[in-house]
Design a protein around this nucleic acid. Sequence first.
DNA 1: GTGTACCCCACCATAATTGGGGAGTTGGAA
DNA 2: TTCCAACTCCCCAATTATGGTGGGGTACAC
Lengths: 240, 240
Amino acid sequence: MVVISPKLDHILEALEQAATLEGLQTASEALCAHYELAHVVYHWVDSAGDQYGCGTYSVAWQERHLDQNYLRTDPVVSGCYQRFHPVDWKRLDWSSKAARALLLEAIEHGVGNQGFTVPIRGPNGQFALFTVNNTCSDSEWQVFTEANRRDLILIAHYFNQKALEFEPGRTPETSQALSPREIDAMTLLAIGYSRAQVANTLSISEHTLRVYIESARFKLGALNTTHAVARALSRGLIVV
Amino acid sequence: MVVISPKLDHILEALEQAATLEGLQTASEALCAHYELAHVVYHWVDSAGDQYGCGTYSVAWQERHLDQNYLRTDPVVSGCYQRFHPVDWKRLDWSSKAARALLLEAIEHGVGNQGFTVPIRGPNGQFALFTVNNTCSDSEWQVFTEANRRDLILIAHYFNQKALEFEPGRTPETSQALSPREIDAMTLLAIGYSRAQVANTLSISEHTLRVYIESARFKLGALNTTHAVARALSRGLIVV
DNA sequence: GTGTACCCCACCATAATTGGGGAGTTGGAA
DNA sequence: TTCCAACTCCCCAATTATGGTGGGGTACAC
């Protein structure tokens, strides 16, 4: 593996000009060649089964990964989920048997023994991973990751920005604004108050409070109070 | 305002070496001087009153901002909450009267008329903003932001990384992981299913479901189901 | 000055949720 | 092996939430 100082501008510009998912695919392959890596992968992690990603992993491995309940098994996914900073695979927790089995299987599918993954988070709990990996020694890998850490963070950011553009359906819902009282009500409910407590806190009757909750539920298209609070939260209308 | 190509390495290294919150404060002042900006602010947004941040805003304005119920009023906060990419203040929604009043008041407190804010998200629903702002013309500001966009993203990233290091108490074991079934239950509740529907969907008895909900409630330290769902959402344990 | 959106209060009855018990299986980790 | 966490099931009674309907008031914009 040769460490090359990347032409970051070119890479990011190519990413910015990508107009489709295929463009991202091409970009990841270009990145892979540029850095002389085994794999470069962007992967939108989503509880609803996998779906969205691109990169140079083999199709067989991607499918296998899905089958494996990887969301809960793969230390890369669960480890990154709890971290903010990019992480070298060596520093993850491989103590569980399932995790080690997954790694062995990955290597059989052509995944390198060294990996470096950047967690990325977007609105509404969106979560994605940007991974580079290769087969090489620990020291070689360390040199590479330290040299390119910042670039990789930026590349990950741009990948995710594009992915969010291409999949707007995930963050849509131009939501109708809530009135101040409705926001009060939703907020207090979200922090665990019962209806009686909320009414008391707002110094209004419980009946009045109910009107607000129903109104908020209507505006949010929610089926019940919990749903309304969940929507208000994930749309950023209230913050807890 | 003069646009200077930043010595990014020096800036980021200084950030990495910061050992305390004061270090970040110093870093933001240095950044401010370096880019010749009116203000540079890192701001951990948290519903529990404000608390954590650093930067060059006047103390008076910070306190005023808090008083103002800024979480709901400030378009910078609410707008960034729904975006992934950095955003120029001009592109936010200033149509509400309260928002415009806030901006006017901000300018009176020495905040510049131009702003650029990078949203940053960490584990467990952590959310923060990194803002640079200045008083200048639209075109000057555009030149500045386009020239420094990538650097600002990286700087924001490093600020947040440090903030997370300094304040581990906010994210650590606070959030105990939920079991798969608990996640299922919380997720379905968050999308509006009633208990009966959830139980039916998961093909378990409603009584069993109740055990999961109670267990999740306990793990999340929640007072009731709505609270539990809200916490699971804002900690990023479930996605809707 | 008519509409619209917000704010406040009341009754009824039914449906749903919660809190307190107890009990058994499995599979993986120590 | 033993332990533990996760998964599954059950009862009862009390509390809470919901779905209707009705009424009043203010403020602002067109």
